[in-house]
Every structure is written in structure tokens, then in C-alpha cells.
Design a binder for these strands. Structure first.
Length: 574
DNA sequence: GCCGTTTTCGGCCCGACTGTTTTCAGTCG
């Protein structure tokens, strides 16, 4: 039974929860939380790292003890320390920790005073009105807990692209408030996470009261969760939570840095400050009582000897060490993209003709696109058979001959069948400039068979690009279980490429996959998978994801000039 | 439990808001 990084991280988080309930040393608890975060964000499976003999202790926050626990978990799927902790805590007590307003101290209090050890018992106690007997539990907290138990938060996170729409109108509203200098959406949104749990707005203004009034009075606000002089939280009608922080201009950079996070990144930077006898908080960088930096983010980084670190990298995944060593990558930008190698038309499941898509691509500043409609597969998608494909190729020839500023490459998105073969015959595929292969079914094959399937597809003589490699749909379908490193290595050997599908619900490769591809020298195709003319705007989401994956322009296939891209793509030989 | 341009021991990020309290603990980000 393979143990994944996620499994290890979940065990460390659970240990941290249980230690909290036992009032363990808070720094020990933090060490487990930090380790969980480190493990979760590793681009490679730790199992493979251990197998190859590389030390786990090189990872940030992993020392001898946690390294040994990781090895134990990898070998047995269990952790004796966790099992032991569990024996000391009633089952169900942990669930209480995840209710809003309940932390370890109150959970301990509930258990001691009322014997409450589970959600069910808590519900019963609330119904009998017994909670107010406990010191510190007033009517408001009781009502809040009753509400949370009745309507459990699904924990559903919004797609970043969805949150962006809500953010845009709110930001516009705040920018109109008199005295407002700057409004920025910080938090995981600014770091470019594929999903966000809430929005964090940072506003610089000389008149915080006016901003606060406009914010809590915004017409999409359904509930004001908290509101002070400089900070507030609301829930919008859409369910999205938005936190606001208002600071003076002199603190803007410090606040932006602080509220952009990530938390692990911030802690790392603050510790660097400490070593320099500096105090770094959301108001600035201070030596004693004197503020020495903080109006800009650059000044905050400079105070600890670092250059500006792009928000997408701020996960404490080595970006601080890279910055300190002058090794920060120059990240890819939208303007670097010259082409888009995955575009659909109304010949299959797109909404616009090839001419219309070509016009939209030009408007988006592209020099070339690949027309890659679906192959025929079990009758789905109105997919192209050899005959309809031939007609489309003639049309592409006509459009290219008409000599526009945009070149259209001939391609196909062909299904990778269960056994790894492709859904169109070789002689048809051989007529194309590129062949994109994609998994659209048989998602649950199992780790080994799934990799074998993809490797066989990559072995096909005409195979160019593996589309949306994990086949995930964020919030709807989990990624397929596959040894991505095996796939990446095979791409490197075969001269194939990986796609970063830029549709907001896909964003697949993920950031860790991008780093893996770059490590093995496999170029990534940032592709819109456009089905409508306006979908070329999705490239922006893809670029953001690529930046999170540390990719520079040189790591991205479609930053290349057309001639060079074509050379790399066209594969007639085995 | 981790970690070192103060340290192999003794630190470990920091402040706002809430609900409850009569001065603050707990939670949250």
C-alpha cells in the first residue's frame, strides 16, 4: 500500500491536534504543523526520496525525530506516536476543535465541566441550555456553536477565478471611497493558489472609518462577522468570507507582506528580522521604537537582506534561501507566451468556428495556435473521425494560406484509451503537427496501471503533449493516482511535453508538477484549452500556476518562436 | 520538535477582535 505525502501530512496534523488538547509545548505543536505543511508541498513523493537515499533532514522543519517518523509511516502506514496519543483522548474530541470559536482551551473546559467529548454531546448540552453554566461560554458563543453544528461548513473553497469576480467589484467599490489610496487583494489569492478559502483585502487610507462603513455596507454583504476600527470580516451572499485590514500608507508594504503570507513564509522572514534585532509586524519593520521600513514590500525584504520575492513563491519552500543566494528564478509572464497549443472549435465541443477562434487568439496577442479538437471516442464530444479531421486540415491550410498574422498548427486532442493506445490510427496522427493525448476516462485504474497506461501512450511515435496530466477537476474530481515522476522522466526520454491546462477548474499540472517537470528539463505547455473565444483569457490563470511552480519563460514550450516550437513538436520518428 | 551571522541550549511571530469579563483569555489570521 503506497503511502503518499498527503497521508504523512494528515498524520502530523492529527498529532498536532491531539497535542493541543493535551496542552503540550506550543512550539512542539507548531513543529508538527510546519512539518505537515512541508511534507504536503513537496513536489516528489517522500517514499521515492527515501528510496533514493536522500536525507529527509534537508527539508525545512524536519529533524531527526520527524525524519524517523516519516520513515516509520512510509514503512508501516502507521505512526506509533499517534496511536499512543489517540489512546489518551476520547474519540470525537478532535472534531470539536474544528468548530469556530472552539480552540483547545475551551474544548478542555467543556470536557472537564460537562463531560462533553463529541459533537453529539455538545449538541445535546446546547439543547438543554447547559453550556452557559461554563465560565467563558455566554449566549453568543452558544448560539454560534449551535449554528455551526446545524450547518457544518463544507470547507468548500472557491476557485481562484470565481473569487476574482467577487473581488473585482468589491475592490472597485472600496477604491471609490474618499481617502483610499490603494486596495489590494492579498492572501492566498495574491499568491496565486488555485482555490481560496477567503479573500484578504489590504487598504491604505487616511480615513479608516469611511472605508469600514463602505465595506460592511457593501450590498453583497450578508453577515458582518467582526468589525473593529482597522479590521473587519464579512460573509458575502455567495458564501465567500472577506477580511479587511486598513493601514496608513507608511505601513502599507508591511501590511501587504504580512497579509499575503504564507504564514510559514512570514514566520521565516520575521525570524530573520529577529536575528538582526528587528521587529517585523504588519505596521512596519522596527529597530526599538523606530520604524526603519514598511511603506513598500521591497523595503521589508531589504531590511532582512533579501530582494523582492514574487508572491507566488512565498510558501517557505526554499524561496527565501534562493533569494538570499541570488538564485530566484525570473518567472514566466503572460507576455512571454507566443502561442497556445490547445484550442477547440465548434467542429467538436467548442462554441466558435476556427476563424472566430483565430481572430480571438490574435486579439489576445498570440502568434500561433494549435487547433486540437477531440478525436472520436465512443461517440462522445461529436469527436472527429478521419474524414472530418481531413476536412478540418484543409480549412487550416486555406486560413494559413490567406496569410494572416496568426499561424494555425494542425493538431488533435486524442483520447488515451484504457490500455494506453490512442483512439486514432497512426497514419492519421502522422499527418499532424502535434498530437495531444488526454485521459478522459478510466480514472481509477490504480497507480501502477495508470502509469503504465500513460507511458505506453508516450511511446507512441506521434505523441507530443500530455494534456491535463492529473485529469483533476478541482472540487469535483480527484486527480488520478499516478506516479508523476515516472511519467515526467519518460517525457524527458521521449522528447514529449506536459501541459499545464489553464482552465480554472483544472490548473493541471499543479505547482509541484511544474517543479518536477523543470527539474527533469521537460518543457511545459501553458494552454487555454479554449472552447470559446473569451477562453484565451484563461492563459493568465495558467501563467500564475506556472509561476507558483517556479517556471521561467525558458521552461515553457509556447514561449518559443513558432519555427522552434514546430521543430520540437513534430514527431514522425519513433 | 527544530534550529544556529548571538546560541548544540534556549529560544521559538505578532497583533486585533470577541465575548466575556471587570482586567483578560481565547481564538484567529
Amino acid at each position: 500500500m503506497p503511502v503518499h505525502n498527503q497521508d504523512i501530512a494528515a498524520i502530523f496534523d492529527e498529532i498536532a491536534d491531539l497535542l493541543e488538547l493535551q496542552q503540550a509545548n506550543p512550539f512542539r505543536i507548531r513543529a508538527y504543523r510546519r512539518a505537515a505543511q512541508t511534507v504536503r508541498s513537496q513536489p516528489r513523493e517522500l517514499a521515492e526520496r527515501v528510496a533514493s537515499g536522500r536525507a529527509l533532514q534537508d527539508l525545512p522543519g524536519i529533524g531527526d525525530d520527524l525524519a524517523a517518523k516519516i520513515v516509520e509511516i512510509l514503512g508501516t502506514g502507521r505512526c506509533a506516536a499517534l496511536d499512543k496519543l489517540k489512546r489518551g483522548v476520547p474519540e470525537g474530541l478532535e472534531d470539536l476543535l474544528h468548530l469556530p470559536g472552539l480552540g483547545p482551551a475551551r474544548v478542555r473546559l467543556l470536557r472537564r465541566e460537562l463531560g462533553i467529548t463529541s459533537l453529539a454531546r455538545l449538541r445535546a448540552a446546547i439543547e438543554k441550555g447547559r453550556l452557559t453554566e461554563v465560565r467563558g461560554f455566554g449566549p453568543k458563543l452558544q448560539a454560534r456553536l449551535a449554528e455551526a453544528i446545524a450547518n457544518p461548513v463544507t470547507g468548500k473553497r472557491a476557485l481562484r477565478a470565481t473569487a476574482a469576480r467577487y473581488a473585482a467589484s468589491l475592490v472597485a467599490q472600496l477604491q471609490r471611497v474618499e481617502g483610499v489610496e490603494t486596495v489590494t487583494v492579498a492572501g492566498s489569492f495574491r499568491r496565486g493558489s488555485d482555490t481560496v478559502g477567503d479573500l484578504d483585502l489590504v487598504v491604505s487610507s487616511r480615513r479608516p472609518a469611511a472605508v469600514m462603513k463602505a465595506f460592511t455596507g457593501y450590498d453583497e454583504v450578508r453577515a458582518v462577522l467582526a468589525a473593529g476600527d482597522t479590521r473587519a470580516s464579512v460573509r458575502l451572499a455567495s458564501g465567500l468570507q472577506v477580511d479587511l485590514r486598513i493601514v496608513p500608507r507608511a505601513s502599507y508594504g508591511a501590511a501587504l507582506h504580512y497579509f499575503t503570507g504564507s504564514k510559514a513564509h512570514n514566520i521565516h522572514v520575521r525570524r530573520m528580522g529577529q536575528r538582526r534585532k528587528l521587529k517585523i509586524n504588519e505596521y512596519g519593520v522596527f529597530r526599538g521604537r523606530e520604524q526603519i521600513a514598511g511603506e513598500t514590500e521591497e523595503s521589508v525584504f531589504a531590511s532582512v537582506g533579501l530582494p523582492f520575492i514574487p508572491p507566488e513563491l512565498r510558501e517557505d519552500n526554499g524561496e527565501i534561501e534562493a533569494a538570499a543566494g541570488g538564485r530566484l528564478p525570473a518567472l514566466v509572464e503572460r507576455a512571454d507566451l507566443r502561442g497556445d497549443l490547445h484550442v477547440h472549435t465548434s467542429a467538436t465541443d467548442g462554441t466558435a468556428t476556427l476563424t472566430e477562434m483565430a481572430r480571438a487568439a490574435r486579439a489576445a496577442g498570440l502568434q500561433y495556435i494549435a487547433c486540437t479538437d477531440h478525436s472520436r471516442y465512443l461517440g462522445a464530444y461529436r469527436g472527429l473521425d478521419a474524414g472530418r479531421l481531413a476536412a478540418q486540415l484543409d480549412e487550416i491550410d486555406r486560413l494559413n494560406a490567406a496569410g494572416g498574422r496568426l499561424t494555425i498548427l494542425k493538431g488533435i486532442e486524442v483520447d488515451i484509451l484504457e490500455d494506453g493506445s490512442l483512439a486514432l490510427p497512426d497514419d492519421v496522427l502522422g499527418r499532424l503537427d502535434l498530437v495531444i493525448g488526454a485521459v478522459h476516462g478510466h480514472f481509477g485504474l490504480g497507480r501502477r496501471r495508470q502509469a503504465d497506461r500513460l507511458l505506453r501512450a508516450l511511446d507512441h511515435p506521434h505523441f507530443s503533449i500530455l494534456a491535463h496530466p492529473a485529469a483533476r477537476l478541482i472540487g469535483e474530481r480527484e486527480p488520478i493516482d499516478v506516479d508523476l515522476e515516472r511519467v515526467v522522466r519518460h517525457c524527458a526520454q521521449r522528447g514529449c511535453f506536459l501541459e499545464l491546462n489553464a482552465q480554472p477548474q483544472r490548473l493541471d499540472l499543479d505547482d509541484a508538477g511544474c517543479r518536477l517537470a523543470a527539474e527533469h528539463g521537460v518543457l511545459v505547455s501553458i494552454a487555454s484549452d479554449a472552447h470559446r473565444p473569451e477562453d484565451f483569457a484563461c492563459l493568465e490563470w495558467g501563467v500564475t500556476q506556472a509561476r507558483r511552480g517556479w517556471l521561467g519563460a525558458a521552461n515553457v514550450l509556447n514561449t518559443l518562436p513558432l519555427a522552434r516550437a514546430k521543430e520540437l513538436l513534430y514527431r514522425t520518428m519513433s
